[in-house]
Design a protein around this nucleic acid. Structure first.
Lengths: 197, 197
DNA sequence: TCAAAAAATGACCATTGGTCACTTTTAAGA
DNA sequence: TCTTAAAAGTGACCAATGGTCATTTTTTGA
């Protein structure tokens, strides 16, 4: 393949991906069709499959990119944290950033539930690359946990509260705000993970 | 319509509904097709639509029935509760019963997420009939809340934690058990809702 | 200018929720 | 017992969708 052709192919791929990001962002995963993605970028449906094997595959790629960016910011903050409270604050800043951008985390939640009945996809999604992984979370907080409550559980409870809030939020209910959940989650983590908690 | 014909129609409806309950229970909502439901009960697809207008409608009916049963048990227990701790215990017994039966609450979670992008359905689902409603929860705990933390928020946080756990559980992760979440949720409610918390 | 390779296309397939004109069954009256 | 109207049941059909692939168009380098 010539250099120029490679570039053209790359460009088409980029255009399709941007079209997909826009459409997923506004309509969610299931409601966005492959034909829409290609049309919106000015191509025919068949072109999609020259770049990815499935709609799932592209979505995972997008998520991977997005999470990578968020995580870089998060990890540099966490490195500076002195105690569990500060770690939790950094984590919740990170979670907030994933919500703020077009409610992206809710779209990812949709995809997560969609994956539950698709075994291969579900196993793939459980990898740290895509999930708010419990093992990664555990590593982040471990150094600051003062009790013998397992760090993994602190992480899983935190994720549960966050994802539960996403459902609440997705349904348009506004009984609790992001701040309420953040506060509750941090209180819970401190209760389980510090001596004074 | 004659009595006998009415009975026949009722019976068919019952057969279809039982078939649907079984299939939804094992394959979830989206992965169960209308044709499967009717075939499994020994009818043709068209028969389905003589009884309900859509797959959604039947699912909602099933949920309504199920929740009704659970709630009766729950409310009779809550009436006897003397403090917030006992109310929370009754509520979590109720939540546990919805999980124990073929993971029914996870299937309902799937349906909830499915409804998010379908406006009419989403609004319908927000009614107390179908949701672990925040207003109902608030009414249940209100008498026992000693602080000025809004009962609605205690309820919404509780639901968030429960539904977040469902996601965790649906993905096959087993970092936290139902007991872990129950314990955390009750601790959180007591922290926000009692003076000694 | 031309041929090979890559890019792009869109008709086609299977699956699905839903529709509806048609067929079969049922039951009540003659 | 026969007739007939109404109800029950059927399955071909429709549109939308994810995915396939033979074919067409474009690009490139000799």
């Amino acid at each position: 393949m010539s250099k120029k052709q490679q570039e053209k192919s790359q460009q088409t791929m980029q255009e399709l991906m941007e079209s997909a990001i826009e459409l997923f962002g506004s309509k969610g995963f299931v409601q966005t069709s492959v034909a829409e993605i290609t049309e919106h970028a000015g191509y025919a449906k068949g072109s999609f499959y020259r770049h990815w094997n499935s709609k799932d595959e592209l979505f995972l790629l997008i998520v991977e990119h997005k999470l990578k960016l968020y995580r870089e910011t998060r990890d540099s903050k966490i490195a500076k944290a002195n105690n569990l409270k500060e770690v939790m604050d950094a984590i919740w800043d990170f979670l907030e950033s994933t919500i703020n951008e077009k409610n992206w985390s809710s779209i990812f939640l949709e995809f997560t539930i969609y994956s539950v009945r698709r075994e291969t996809l579900r196993k793939l999604l459980n990898k740290s690359l895509y999930r708010l992984s419990n093992t990664i979370f555990a590593d982040l907080v471990r150094d600051h946990v003062e009790t013998d409550y397992p760090p993994e559980k602190i992480g899983a409870l935190n994720t549960a509260l966050f994802e539960g809030y996403l459902i609440h939020h997705s349904l348009g209910t506004e009984v609790i705000s992001f701040q309420d959940v953040r506060q509750a989650a941090i209180a819970l983590a401190l209760k389980n993970g510090t001596k004074q908690g």
